[in-house]
Design a protein around this nucleic acid. Structure first.
Lengths: 246, 246
DNA sequence: TTAATTAGTGCTACTGTGCAACTAACTTAG
DNA sequence: CTAAGTTAGTTGCACAGTAGCACTAATTAA
């Protein structure tokens, strides 16, 4: 049982019914040239809702452990992946009486970008990478997680059009071709090489690393982010000219 | 299997401590050529936190009345303004142990755009329009509402650069000059008339209304939104060329 | 040696913008 | 009634940025 603080706040707090509050994290990475998302299997216990189904990693906020929503998301992400410094961004919140059979609940959805992990699974092995096909995954998801995932994918695709986000899908050092490939994988369309390079340099996104990669073909120049902490906004999108007319 | 009572869900729900859940609405309009936001005065009761301070309209989610977060926001907006069909968008959520002295709390911030109201106040007269100066208002706000307001203003300004949002600050019928003025007020900078018109038409944002406005000068063509339900995304921002070099 | 692959560069045409001048239709002052 | 002022809306031109595509160079594989 929880020990009540001896000093009760002098506030008059009406005892209204409180919703459940949770955080779900949509963790993206690129594996084998395709966008993947990490899902966990819910316990088979029939006293739990959606037993045995695949779901986004997440769960209830812990008012003891979690100082705020973002650190709650970070905690859950670290539990599943071991990654400590992902790109993490809030997608939105969904709350209502219908989404969890147990009670009125509100969930806070974050999406994260991490480089392709060497060991696919970490710790609890109920977690698996699923390819994102269109806006979805092949399996049926628990609760309204299919909708949450869709929103996260949409946000990601949209934001990739005009930001440096895909850099966080790569290790610290990468070639411009690597980076371009990340854009193409997420956006599911080719990008013009020349315009891509011009814009990346014009934005001051990267700085050179002076060693040279060994590889199957010509050694390519390695780069790293010039300002790893800030994401860069491009003045325009990567849209080809045609799509402006459609 | 033993049949449970239909009232009690058959789920095993751990009795963890639940946060407070609230919704706050940042309601924008344009009055006298300046962006304004609606604030309400908190009760003077010293048993309430932040007594007598100005705050964003909002409050706790009511699990009986509110089907979901958005309808909760809409309910609070209608209470204060009487407006039934504003533009309403979620800005984000902020939750943590420190933001409300009473308990761990999570709030869900929406921003709304409404046309300039004829009667400034509706119903409860503790609500007042304040001009937005920079990212803030002149008064000190309750809780972390100054930060929430800042986030909403930033979202608004950012999104106005490449969407049709300012149309929702006008009545259903408006002239192109009216619309351009809304962009200029929100963005706090002049826009090129010629480019503005070209882009608005190219995007198919508006359709003509065949009556003509009576006014102090030449009657201007009236327009209305071609698709009032959908916001339009422009292929580029309204940024002048200089800012691309800065 | 030759073909294939990939990194990186150069060139051109085109689109949309900034800028500014211009016309047209109305109001207001005298 | 006239002249000046105001605003809606158009037109023309110079210029910046990039899409599209061809090209060079360096390496590997056969």
């Amino acid at each position: 049982m929880k020990q009540k603080s001896p000093v009760v706040a002098p506030f008059n707090l009406q005892a209204i019914e409180r919703p459940l509050v949770s955080v779900d994290v949509v963790i993206f990475t690129v594996l084998e040239g395709a966008l993947h998302v990490l899902l966990v299997k819910r316990p088979d216990d029939p006293r739990e809702p959606c037993p045995g189904m695949w779901a986004l990693p997440g769960g209830f906020v812990d008012v003891e452990k979690d100082a705020d929503l973002e650190s709650c998301a970070l905690r859950k992400l670290q539990q599943k992946t071991g990654v400590k410094t992902p790109y993490l961004e809030q997608v939105g919140s969904w709350g209502g009486s219908k989404r969890d059979p147990r009670a009125w609940s509100a969930t806070h959805v974050y999406f994260a970008l991490i480089p392709a992990p060497e060991s696919l699974l970490q710790g609890s092995n109920d977690a698996t990478w699923f390819p994102v096909e269109g806006q979805r995954v092949r399996v049926k998801l628990a609760f309204d997680h299919a909708m949450l995932l869709e929103a996260a994918v949409q946000r990601l695709r949209n934001k990739v059009e005009y930001t440096s986000l895909p850099a966080y899908l790569l290790p610290q050092e990468f070639t411009l071709s690597d980076l371009q490939r990340m854009y193409e994988v997420v956006l599911e369309r080719p990008i013009e090489k020349s315009a891509f390079r011009t814009r990346v340099f014009a934005a001051g996104l990267v700085e050179e690393v002076d060693k040279v990669r060994a590889g199957p073909n010509r050694p390519a120049q390695l780069y790293r982010l010039a300002h790893p902490r800030e994401i860069v906004y491009f003045p325009r999108t990567f849209s080809p000219r045609k799509s402006a007319e459609d």
